[in-house]
Computed example of a mutant assay.
Amino acid sequence: MDTIVEGVKKAVLMLVTLDADIYRITLFTLKVSGIATLISLAISLPVAFFIALKDFPGKKILISLANLGMGLPPTVVGLWVCLLLWRSGPLGRLRLIYTPTAIVIAQTVIATPVIMALVTAALQQVDKKLRWHIMALGATPLQMLFLMVREARYSILAAVIAGFGAVISEVGASMMVGGNIAGYTRVLTTAIVLETSKGNFEDALALSFILLLMAYLGTLALTYLQQRRHKDEYGN
């Protein structure tokens, strides 16, 4: 119990005193996870839109694969990305292994199926009558996508936060493809693993509380938006 209390105190001290290393690691974590989430959203939106509106052979299989990807082990992703980017691998000439770009690639692979599955479900739940009305008005596919995204925006926001939460909390892939290099590829999760392996449990706990705080702030933002929507719709 004393270790936990000291960990909380140290986390507060790190934040209040503007610890340079902590802020650098935290900002870097937000940067790579944020970029990976945005790339995943850019990939997922058009694919989810196509799946939601079109009937084609293998549609259920594609959806099931996306759902399966929601539970994709980060270490498996890290292994495959590492093999691709390794110096003797297919993309070895790009020299991306142990770089921030490698972490973004691995996290994008992790986040994409999560966001794609949830966005597909959100778009499929849009009222079919609304879709028919939009098509009757002669909307282009891009206009249709925009209007459907607007209609399902809160569910899509939840999907984005779920994808972001999946990548910001993973450690296996980031460790394998990033190497946990201080000041270059170290993120909060890999820093926690490092401090724990060194027996610095108070430092590891402090970092874990900072990571939990970041996750909570994302959840708080979603809750605020959802409650504002409920208030706008029902006036209470």
Results as ranks from 00 to 15, higher is better:
8 V>P: 03
49 F>K: 08
69 G>C: 07
199 G>Y: 08
42 A>T: 08
70 M>K: 01
221 A>C: 13
133 H>S: 15
17 T>A: 14
140 T>D: 10
109 V>N: 02
161 I>V: 11
19 D>L: 01
221 A>H: 02
82 C>Q: 09
101 T>A: 11
132 W>I: 08
75 T>A: 14
189 T>S: 15
4 I>Q: 13
131 R>E: 14
182 A>V: 13
190 T>M: 10
221 A>K: 01
21 D>F: 05
215 A>Y: 09
150 R>G: 15
45 L>D: 10
100 P>E: 02
147 L>N: 08
87 R>K: 14
218 G>E: 05
126 V>P: 12
142 L>I: 10
103 I>P: 07
143 Q>V: 06
173 A>S: 08
206 A>C: 05
191 A>E: 11
130 L>Q: 14
30 L>N: 02
96 L>D: 00
180 N>F: 03
66 A>D: 03
23 Y>V: 11
116 M>G: 09
212 L>H: 05
21 D>Q: 12
39 I>N: 06
226 Q>L: 14
10 K>L: 15
195 E>W: 04
14 M>Q: 12
29 T>N: 13
26 T>K: 12
233 E>Q: 12
219 T>N: 15
61 I>M: 14
222 L>K: 09
94 L>W: 02
158 A>C: 11
37 T>V: 11
26 T>Q: 06
34 G>Q: 07
7 G>D: 01
145 L>Y: 04
5 V>H: 12
67 N>M: 14
188 L>E: 12
13 L>Y: 14
208 S>M: 11
2 D>C: 01
201 F>H: 12
45 L>A: 07
181 I>D: 04
171 V>E: 06
150 R>M: 08
96 L>Q: 00
196 T>S: 15
6 E>V: 03
105 I>M: 02
110 I>T: 08
203 D>H: 15
189 T>F: 03
183 G>K: 10
39 I>G: 05
173 A>K: 07
67 N>Q: 15
154 Y>Q: 10
199 G>K: 07
18 L>R: 13
117 A>G: 12
198 K>E: 14
29 T>P: 12
111 A>Y: 00
228 R>Q: 12
84 L>T: 00
18 L>P: 01
212 L>T: 08
54 K>W: 05
234 Y>G: 04
187 V>K: 11
92 G>H: 04
51 I>V: 13
86 W>C: 02
204 A>W: 05
226 Q>S: 13
224 Y>S: 13
215 A>I: 13
95 R>A: 10
188 L>F: 07
183 G>S: 11
219 T>W: 09
210 I>N: 10
